[in-house]
Simulated scan of single mutants.
Amino acid sequence: MQFLKILFWCLLAFVAALFTYGNWTSVPLQLWSGMEALVKLPFLLMIAFLLGFLPTYVYNRAVRWRLRQRLTTVERSLAEARAVVTAPTPAYAPTPAYPGPATSHDPVPPLDPVPPVPEGRLV
């Protein structure tokens, strides 16, 4: 694909060079107060092209920059929203972790979890 881009730009430069060579004539340009300027035709066409192209190009870059900024803001807020979402809390308190298996000199059995209280009933 890069080769095709290079080929296109080389072909465009060749056509521009042929156009410049074939149209290297002076064109009178009427200025204010009766003044006249002699300008080469390829230079005049290049100036006219740039006067039409540059404002459009600047506007396009500004729109793309603004949309890229909006997209980054939305992506950042989406990442923050995903980070805030947590797992639901259980209906009962979790049991404390037992330090290890009971030994012969430790008569305390492990704790059983507290059964959940059914919703809508008073105990």
Rank of each mutant, 00 (worst) to 15 (best):
L71Y: 07
V74P: 01
L78K: 04
R82G: 14
P88Y: 04
L71G: 01
Q69C: 02
R82H: 09
E80M: 03
T86R: 13
Y57H: 13
T56C: 12
A62C: 08
R82Q: 11
T86F: 05
A83V: 02
P55L: 10
E75Q: 15
L71I: 02
T86S: 09
V63P: 06
T56Q: 13
V74M: 09
R66H: 05
T72K: 12
V63G: 02
R76E: 01
R82S: 05
T86W: 10
A81Q: 07
T73G: 15
L78W: 09
Y59F: 12
V84P: 00
A79T: 10
T72P: 00
Y57E: 12
Y57N: 11
L78P: 00
S77H: 09
V63N: 05
T73Q: 14
A87Q: 06
L78N: 04
A87E: 07
T73A: 14
R66N: 03
Q69V: 02
N60W: 15
T56E: 10
N60S: 13
R68C: 00
S77K: 11
L67A: 04
W65Q: 03
R61W: 12
Y59M: 10
R76Q: 04
R61D: 01
R61L: 12
A87I: 03
A81F: 07
A87F: 08
V74G: 01
V58I: 15
R66K: 06
R61I: 05
N60Q: 14
P88S: 02
A62G: 06
R76Y: 02
L78V: 02
V58E: 07
V85S: 11
S77F: 08
P55N: 10
P88K: 02
P55T: 11
V58P: 01
Y59V: 08
R64W: 08
V85C: 09
A83S: 09
E80K: 03
V63Q: 13
P55H: 09
R61G: 00
T72G: 01
Y59L: 13
V63A: 05
A79W: 12
L54N: 06
A79M: 15
Q69N: 05
V85D: 05
V63L: 15
E75T: 12
Y59I: 09
V85L: 15
V85Y: 14
Y57R: 13
L71F: 09
L54W: 12
A87C: 01
P88N: 02
T72R: 14
